[in-house]
């Protein structure tokens, strides 16, 4: 199941996020990395150093675009200027798929620059799905939607988060970027069993996975991306990998970023689970 129409029939392995502190190391040492994920918005500029670095990376590596500001659940329709900029970047990177979050972040033209949770209603699911279809039609590249980590729930919700995710991806006929760490964080914050989530999503639609570290506070967990991946998240990753098959996986490390080698080493731990799966499949 690794290569599917949601990830453009690719077989990407373990990637890491392209971050500024690692630019020099990557460009000078050219380490072997399966692929890099970029935050689209950091490169949706007209010119200058960000694009100069990106072009050098593209000469050597496969790059996948991940967005943080499409706001597929915001009430307004897709912003044509924003979409044009994404499309220009898509042509530059030749990304096989493009991901963004199942969330909202702006209303009435004002931007919060945060990934905010949706009320899990049927109307919201249809709204998100319609927007995803419009975006995909314009960008002409498969879209994966990522589940959030969240800290609040709405009285208006009519279903669980995973039921909402199912509703959206089925209505939009799109793929899922499954963030295992986000599920763990939300499960602790909202008192649900994360394995119920993992077991009840359409596994054939998972085109990519995210793993990351988080921080524990007295009354909640915060998705800080500033730690190595914690054991319960690795266990969930192993579990869901058996359901989805080996899937392109990306380690997110966005704050207190250690050396390139340390980040890469942490990401490559995921290989252990993927290799076990390949052996199991071969034996079967």
């Amino acid at each position: 199941m690794p290569a599917n129409r949601f990830n453009n029939f690719t077989n990407y392995g373990i990637g890491i996020g392209l971050r500024v502190p690692h630019y020099q190391h990557i460009l000078s040492r050219k380490p072997t990395v399966d692929w890099f994920e970029i935050i689209s918005e950091n490169f949706m500029v007209d010119a200058g150093r960000p694009l100069h670095v990106l072009d050098q990376i593209l000469e050597q590596y496969r790059v996948v675009q991940h967005g943080v500001a499409m706001y597929l659940g915001s009430p307004d329709g897709p912003d044509p200027t924003h979409l044009r900029k994404i499309k220009r970047l898509v042509k530059r990177t030749n990304t096989p798929w493009l991901s963004d979050h199942l969330c909202w972040g702006s209303v009435d033209g004002r931007f919060t620059h945060d990934l905010l949770p949706m009320p899990y209603t049927f109307a919201a699911a249809e709204h998100c799905a319609q927007k995803i279809r419009e975006v995909r039609d314009y960008l002409e590249v498969p879209i994966l939607v990522e589940n959030l980590s969240s800290y609040a729930e709405f009285h208006a919700s009519e279903m669980t988060e995973w039921e909402f995710l199912n509703e959206v991806v089925e209505r939009a006929d799109c793929g899922i970027l499954l963030d295992v760490n986000n599920i763990y964080v939300s499960s602790k914050n909202h008192n649900f069993d994360p394995y119920d989530y993992l077991n009840n999503i359409p596994h054939h639609r998972v085109g990519q996975m995210h793993i990351a570290g988080h921080s524990k506070f007295e009354k909640y967990l915060l998705d800080t991306h500033d730690h190595p991946v914690l054991d319960p998240v690795w266990k969930m990753y192993a579990h869901v990998s058996k359901l989805t098959g080996p899937t392109a996986t990306l380690l997110e490390w966005d704050d207190r970023i250690p050396s390139f080698d340390e980040v890469h080493k942490e990401a490559l731990k995921a290989n252990k689970f993927c290799k076990e799966l390949v052996h199991e499949e071969a034996a079967a």
Partner: peptide, 22 residues
């Protein structure tokens, strides 16, 4: 009509949420 009302409800929730956090 139900769909439209649902979307309006979503927008109102998001407005309130944004108002609170901003």
């Amino acid at each position: 009509a139900t769909e439209k009302a649902g979307r309006q409800e979503m927008r109102e929730i998001q407005r309130l949420f944004a108002k609170a956090i901003m």
